[in-house]
Amino acid sequence: MTKIRFQLAPKPTKAEKTAQGKSGFVPVGTRWILERSNAWMERSKSLVKNFEPTFSHATTKINLCLMRLMLKRLAYI
């Protein structure tokens, strides 16, 4: 099994937000993508508890969950 390494973009400081003319919540590119993906996968009831015996079964469940999400989005187009 290999570890996935990536760098998260730093959160903007209050000074950077005011310089951009923004206030409150400002989504950061990389963080926003990861957080939304995790939230979509958590909606799938089969992924709420990890009862899968092997890593390959778990990754297959995640792939099926994402395919289901894509099909739902295509149905609304």
Rank of each mutant, 00 (worst) to 15 (best):
M1W: 00
M1C: 10
T2P: 08
T2V: 04
I4R: 15
F6C: 10
F6K: 10
Q7W: 06
L8A: 07
L8F: 12
A9V: 00
P10H: 13
P10D: 13
P10F: 01
K11Q: 03
K11I: 13
K11M: 15
K11L: 15
K11T: 05
P12T: 09
P12Q: 03
K14P: 07
K14N: 08
A15L: 06
K17I: 03
K17V: 07
K17Q: 13
T18E: 10
A19C: 06
A19S: 09
Q20Y: 04
Q20N: 08
G21R: 13
G21N: 07
G21K: 10
S23N: 10
S23V: 02
G24I: 08
F25C: 05
V26G: 12
V26A: 03
P27D: 08
P27L: 04
V28P: 06
V28N: 05
G29A: 08
G29Q: 09
R31S: 01
W32A: 08
I33N: 13
L34Q: 08
E35N: 05
R36W: 04
R36G: 10
S37D: 08
N38R: 05
N38W: 07
N38M: 13
N38D: 03
A39E: 12
A39G: 00
W40V: 07
M41C: 15
M41V: 12
E42D: 04
S44R: 10
S46N: 01
K49C: 09
K49M: 03
N50S: 06
N50Q: 14
N50R: 04
N50M: 14
N50V: 15
F51H: 01
E52R: 12
E52H: 13
P53F: 01
P53L: 06
T54L: 04
T54G: 13
F55Q: 08
S56C: 00
S56N: 03
A58C: 08
T59D: 04
T60V: 06
T60F: 00
I62V: 08
L64W: 01
L64Y: 12
L64S: 12
C65N: 14
M67G: 11
M67I: 09
R68N: 14
R68C: 00
L69A: 05
L69Y: 03
M70P: 02
M70E: 15
L71P: 02
K72I: 00
K72W: 12
R73M: 11
R73A: 07
A75Y: 04
Y76P: 00
I77P: 03
